[in-house]
């Protein structure tokens, strides 16, 4: 999961302090693992260096958490590219995909399209596995089947999420 893209996406709603960013992240995505301040600081300085964010103002007191960040046009494009690029189908993708869906919703991008693209990618891999399985021996078949079942589970999750997009959008906007 890319913390940088996530933080960038959060900034799209408007400039924020580092502290606010951490709180917003933890609230939405850090259910089991809250971000450290250090992580926020290092990520933001990397984004600053790449010109994806700018510092809009500094509160008195110093420290990265006192800086107010704003996203640049380059930053917006970067988030869009990230959201549009399907993840390589692999097990335990959900948290990334979930983050992407929420961010897409938050930033007013097409979450459904995102899911469709992802499904297409999943199916592409599944097709490949199916082909490999068809021509392979029993061991190949068993291995491919294992992957296929996992991918299918992901796809089911995608379907389910797609079916619940409206409700998710409501919650995100609240």
């Amino acid at each position: 999961m890319s913390i940088g893209h996530t933080l960038l996406g959060l900034l799209e709603a408007g400039p924020r302090h580092g502290y606010d960013l951490k709180r917003a992240f933890d609230e939405r995505f850090g259910h089991d693992r809250p971000l450290h301040y250090g992580q926020v600081y290092s990520t933001m300085s990397r984004l600053l260096k790449n010109g994806l964010v700018v510092v809009e103002g500094i509160e008195p007191g110093g420290g990265p958490e006192r800086k107010r960040y704003a996203i640049t046009d380059a930053g917006i494009t970067d988030v869009a590219d990230w959201l549009a690029t399907p993840e390589k189908p692999e097990p335990y993708l959900q948290s990334t995909l979930y983050t992407k869906v929420v961010l897409a919703l938050m930033t007013g991008r097409g979450a459904a399209e995102l899911l469709d693209t992802q499904r297409a990618e999943h199916l592409r891999l599944m097709r490949e596995l199916t082909r490999r399985k068809k021509d392979g021996d029993l061991a190949d078949q068993l291995i491919c089947d294992h992957a296929l079942f996992h991918l299918e589970a992901d796809l089911r999750w995608l379907e389910l999420t797609a079916a619940r997009l409206d409700r998710l959008a409501e919650e995100v906007r609240r």
């Binding site: 499904r119 199916l123 599944m126 097709r127 596995l129 199916t130 296929l148 991918l151 299918e152 796809l155």
Partner: peptide
């Protein structure tokens, strides 16, 4: 509606 069955296809379309 099953992905593993759809995986036998050349391409897929989604009806929603």
């Amino acid at each position: 509606h099953e992905a593993r069955v759809a995986a036998w296809s050349d391409r897929e379309v989604v009806v929603r």
